[in-house]
Each structure stands twice: as C-alpha cells, then as structure tokens.
Simulated scan of single mutants.
Amino acid sequence: MDETPQPRWMIVANVVRWRRYGDGGQELRPGTKAYRGGARVFVVDTYPGTGHEDVTTVGQARNTGHWITIDMPSRHLHTCRARLVHAPAVLRRAEKLGVAAHTEECARERAASLERLAALYRREAHPGIPHPGGCLCHECLSGGPGPVS
C-alpha cells in the first residue's frame, strides 16, 4: 500500500496571467504553453546562474488538468511564497526528483529571492522596447515598474 508522503515546505507561485511574446515582446499570450494564466504551481527545484533562472515546477496542465512536472523560466511566475504542502501528487513528484526538503525559514528566503529574480527577469526579457498599447503583462497589471519608454 502506498503511504502518503509527509508534508514539506515548498515555494508556491502563480503563473502570470499574460506574458509578452514574439518579436520585441509586442504580442501577448495568456499564461504559458503548459499552464493557464493564474495557475498555482509548486516550485520543486531551481537552477541559479542560468541567465534566466529556470525552475522545475509541478502543477495542473492547461488542457488536461493532469499533474505535470516541467522546467520553465522563473519570469513566468509571480507571488512566490512559502507554504506547507500536503498535496500527495506534488509531494510524490518532489520525492521522485530527489529534491531535499526545506525548513520553513529556508523556503521563505528562497521564495523572496525567487520573487525578486522573477521580476528582474521579466523586466530584462525585452529591454528598452516599449510595451504594446493596452498591455496586459504582469508589470502593467500589477502596477510594477511599468513599461519601458
């Protein structure tokens, strides 16, 4: 009989509702190819120093709702926070990947760091190029640093 894994502290984030895409970031796409905009994902691993901070996430797929594990750029995430995760599907996938468990303090620090880096990478994705008219990207919607003129 398969027993339920023990809860563990993880980083939880949401996928940006809209992201800039295409030549000069002048097009907008909802969410990502794998996740709907606003979807909650669990960050199980990070790859610092890659230039765009890739993260391994577990979440429910856009089209099927099945649990998936994918690597994605952190710039597509926002509202990173530390949470004690109880979801067996997420915990099993994290264990299968061999990811070490975090303490609450470590998870909070990593979530704050990831939030800062994700915002930085979103700003750097299309440097010096103005946002399209009526832009719905995360920075424009959240009242962040705003469009680059």
Rank of each mutant, 00 (worst) to 15 (best):
D2T: 09
E3F: 14
E3I: 07
P7L: 13
P7T: 04
R8G: 09
W9T: 01
W9G: 00
W9E: 04
M10V: 12
M10T: 06
A13I: 10
A13T: 14
N14M: 13
V16C: 11
R20I: 13
R20D: 11
Y21G: 10
G22M: 14
D23K: 13
G24N: 14
G25R: 02
G25D: 08
Q26K: 15
P30G: 15
T32E: 00
Y35V: 00
R36P: 13
A39P: 06
V41T: 01
F42E: 01
V44W: 00
V44L: 08
T46N: 05
P48F: 05
G49R: 00
G51K: 00
E53L: 15
E53W: 11
D54F: 12
D54P: 14
V55N: 03
T57Y: 01
G59W: 02
G59T: 09
G59P: 03
G59C: 04
Q60G: 03
T64C: 03
G65P: 14
G65E: 03
G65I: 07
H66L: 10
H66F: 08
I68H: 01
T69L: 11
I70W: 12
I70G: 00
D71R: 12
H76G: 10
H76V: 10
T79D: 11
T79G: 04
A82E: 14
L84M: 12
L84F: 07
L91K: 02
L91A: 06
R93H: 10
E95H: 02
L97C: 11
G98F: 07
A100Q: 08
A100T: 09
A101L: 06
E104W: 01
E105S: 15
R108I: 00
E109Q: 15
R110G: 08
A111Y: 11
S113Q: 06
L117K: 05
A118Q: 04
L120I: 11
E124N: 13
A125V: 03
P127L: 05
I129A: 04
H131D: 13
P132I: 13
G134N: 05
L136M: 09
H138C: 12
C140A: 15
C140Y: 04
C140R: 07
C140G: 05
G144M: 10
G146S: 11
G146H: 07
P147W: 05
